[in-house]
Structure formats: C-alpha cells, structure tokens
C-alpha cells in the first residue's frame, strides 16, 4: 500500500529575511532620492528646452489661441494706466527688443496678479484695491514683468510638464495608493523649490526697476506686509513651523520678501525712505467701473 503523509515544512522558507522596518527605511530613502533626482533633472531639462523657444514664437502661439485675459477692453482707463506703468518700468528691467508685454485687468475680488505665456500679465481688482501707492503697484508690476524677462512662464510650463511626465511614470507603477501619493508629494515639493527660486529672482529684478523709476524703495514692501496681514486674518496655521512653511511654499514668505527688498536696497545703495507716489486721480473709479 502506498503511504501518504504531510511533512511539516521548515518555518520561514516562504518569507523574506529582512526586517520590515529596515526594508521600509531603505525603500523610503531610495524612492525619495530617486524622485527628487529625476524631478530636478526634469525641471532643469524642461525649463532649458522651453526657454529655447523664441519669445516671438511663444507670443504668436498664445495669440493664435485667442485666450481672453481679463474682462477690461484695451481702452479701459485702468488697463491703459497699467500698460503705461509697464512702459515706464521697462527700462529698469532691460527688456530686450521685441519683448512686448500686454497688461490685462480682471474685475474680480481675487487678490492676485500673475504673468503668463506670451508676455501677458493679469491684474485682479482684489489686489489693486489693497495697494496704497503707485510704488507698491509698481513693485508688483515689475515683479511680473521680470517673470516674462526671465521667461519663467514658459520655463515653468516646460519644467512642469517634464516633471509631471517623470512623476506619472514612477507613480504609475505604484498605483494611486499611499506610496504613490507620497512619491507625488515628494515630486511636487521638489518642483516648488524651482518656482520659489523664480519668485526670489523676480523680486530682486523688480527692486532694481522700482529703484530706477522712483530713486528709492519706499512702499515696495507694503504689498507683502498687507498680504501677510490678510493671510494671518484668514487661513494662517499657527501650528505650522516657519521652516516648514518656507520649504513647502511656492513663493518666498511675505516677511522674507520684505527683508529681501531691504537687503536689495542696501546692495543697490538706494534709500528705503522717500516720497510715495500716489495712485492717479480716478483710480478708485476705474477700480469699480463695470465691464462693458
């Protein structure tokens, strides 16, 4: 008769011998290094390649898309004033020949202004109505113009697309679980280090232009002081340490930007005091004017 038996196999033959915490730590460090390294390379490569596109081509492509920036027509007094201010600031930024800018105006409560592709700048009423002087407005304007000068919008797009491709290639293999989320966040955190550098560079260039126009930097930091107050009144998180805020923020912190302006004034040997230039007569009416 055939004899059948089940022998007890030795324990552990189907198990990995590495301690789970050790493999966890090794994998976490390796994945963070991999994602950070690849996103840095992708950001640099994407931004470099995008900046090779001539500005004239970029502007032509954007014009061809026929995007409506803002709701104010070209003959709107606010929009005309903003464009005139950009023209006054241009010499201080050494804008190259052919770099044409268009400033647009949107009547909404958003507290923001930004530069985007094709040399287009958009200012929101929510921001303009918080500015106490032309000096503060000129600082924002020069900052956004500096982004165009540095080709930051197109570089940001190129770097962003390249790093998003890299991230999707990596996180695609791990699915949308917690590991995928953690790697995506690592990649995004790496990405914001680049945008913050762009912002800091634009701040420095803006200080030169504003100092060139007014001869001093009084009022340049007012905007950031106002924004800091607005933020602390709305969604500031008292539990978040400043070093962490600095690390995760897309822009330098308001207090750092005020300090940058002061440091820049010392470098440029321009005073931080001086007469403030008032906003033009009718500015308040232009703010409230209804769109045509």
């Amino acid at each position: 008769m055939v004899d059948y038996e089940n022998r007890q196999p030795p324990e552990g033959i189907n198990l990995g011998g590495v301690h789970p915490l050790r493999s966890f730590a090794t994998l976490l460090v390796a994945a963070a290094v991999l994602v950070t390294g690849l996103v840095v390379v992708a950001q640099f490569a994407g931004a470099f390649a995008a900046r090779l596109v001539p500005f004239a081509t970029e502007r032509r492509v954007v014009q061809g898309l026929d995007i409506a920036f803002g709701d104010a027509p070209a003959d709107d007094p606010m929009r005309m004033y903003l464009n005139a201010l950009a023209v006054r600031l241009a010499p201080g930024l050494d804008l190259p020949h052919g770099m044409i800018l268009s400033v647009h105006y949107q009547r909404s409560d958003t507290v923001n202004a930004f530069a985007t592709l094709g040399g287009n700048l958009l200012f929101y009423r929510g921001l303009l109505e918080r500015l106490p002087s032309e000096n503060a407005l000129a600082t924002v304007m020069a900052h956004e113009m500096a982004h165009v000068l540095h080709r930051d919008p197109v570089a940001g797009l190129g770097g962003g697309v390249a790093s998003a491709l890299v991230l999707s290639a990596i996180t695609g293999s791990v699915g949308t679980g917690a590991a995928g989320d953690a790697l995506s966040r690592t990649g995004l955190l790496t990405g914001v280090q680049f945008t913050r550098r762009m912002e800091a560079r634009a701040d420095r260039a803006a200080a030169v232009a504003v100092a060139g126009l007014y001869g001093h930097l009084n009022g340049a930091g007012t905007l950031f002081e106002t924004l800091a107050e607005t933020r602390s009144a709305s969604h500031d998180r008292p539990g978040t340490p400043r070093w962490l805020e600095r690390f995760v923020a897309t822009h330098p912190l308001d207090e750092d930007r005020v300090e940058t302006i002061a440091a820049r004034a010392r470098e440029l040997r321009v005073p931080v005091t001086g007469p403030l230039t008032p906003l033009p007569d009718g500015f308040e009416d232009w703010l409230q004017a209804a769109p045509d």
Partner: peptide, 26 residues
C-alpha cells in the same frame, strides 16, 4: 494593512520580492 501596502508600493518602483505580502499570503 497600511504599512504592508505602503512598503509594497515602494517595492513596485524598484522591483524585487514583495516581502510584506509573502508572509501574508503564506
């Protein structure tokens, strides 16, 4: 569990034995 799932997700990036699940399946 969350720990095993997270570690196995990271292993998917590099390849190799998905050791957190080996003990579970065994």
């Amino acid at each position: 569990d969350h720990f095993k799932t997270f570690v196995s997700g990271l292993i998917n990036v590099f390849g190799g034995r998905v050791t957190p699940f080996e003990s579970l399946i065994d």
